[in-house]
């Protein structure tokens, strides 16, 4: 049984999240009435135990174990919860802030290593692209038709007059230089190392 002690500020965690830079202005976290509209459409909830409504509920209950709970790593930022919430709350943003807290306290670090693949494909192509590592998974989910689309994509684009999908090598090099100078490449290295840090623990 949980005892609600007099004078305990159960809104502390919610207030920290509201004040976080990542939170939208006027985020409706305190207005949440647990209607479950977010969860009704959440693809992560469909396939895992993730429940955006429950995340918000736990935040409002100042459940700090949430930060170290693996469950927060199940959201994949489709923003559906954000776009349907009738009180302009965003479970998705709440989740991002919780993850940052997990990263800050070290527990989340191993979780972010896989994200380095996004950085790698950015370096490789000069634009946001689905990492090559995911290819096999996508093929399994989407099937051969998708593979055929990938094969024919350049032809289809040409037919539609859209030009090539990839950037010219010179542009990719320029972007790489920018990423180098702005510290992105170094940061990516750090993200990659998180994996090892996690293993060594």
């Amino acid at each position: 049984m949980n005892t609600l002690k007099i004078g305990e500020n159960t809104f502390e965690l919610a207030q920290i999240i509201i004040k976080d830079l990542k939170a939208s202005e006027n985020i409706g976290i305190l207005k949440c009435i647990q209607c479950g509209m977010c969860t009704s459409l959440c693809p992560a909830a469909r396939h895992t135990d993730y429940d955006p409504r429950e995340i918000v509920k736990r935040v409002l209950d100042k459940d700090e174990s949430l930060i170290t709970d693996d469950i927060i790593w199940n959201c994949f930022y489709c923003y559906t919860c954000h776009s349907v919430c009738p009180v302009n709350n965003s479970a998705c943003e709440v989740n991002q802030i919780l993850r940052q807290k997990a990263i800050d306290n070290g527990k989340g670090k191993p979780k972010i290593a896989p994200f380095s693949a996004y950085g790698d494909s950015f370096l490789e192509y000069g634009l946001g692209a689905i990492p090559n590592d995911f290819f096999d998974h996508l093929l399994k989910d989407y099937g051969k038709e998708w593979l055929q689309l990938k094969v024919d994509l350049e032809d289809i684009r040409e037919e539609l007059g859209l030009g090539p999908i990839l950037l010219p090598e010179k542009d990719v090099n320029d972007i790489n230089k920018i990423l180098e100078k702005t510290g992105f490449t170094k940061r990516l290295e750090r993200v990659r190392r998180c994996k090892d840090e996690g293993n060594s623990r």
Binding site: M37, T39, S40, V84
Partner: peptide
């Protein structure tokens, strides 16, 4: 059912209401 549906879609000939039983 205590929950606010997010979507109503038609799958084949059936209407499907998506909701969380909160």
């Amino acid at each position: 059912i205590r929950g606010r549906p997010g979507e109503i879609v038609k799958i084949d000939d059936t209407i499907v209401v998506r909701v969380e039983d909160t």
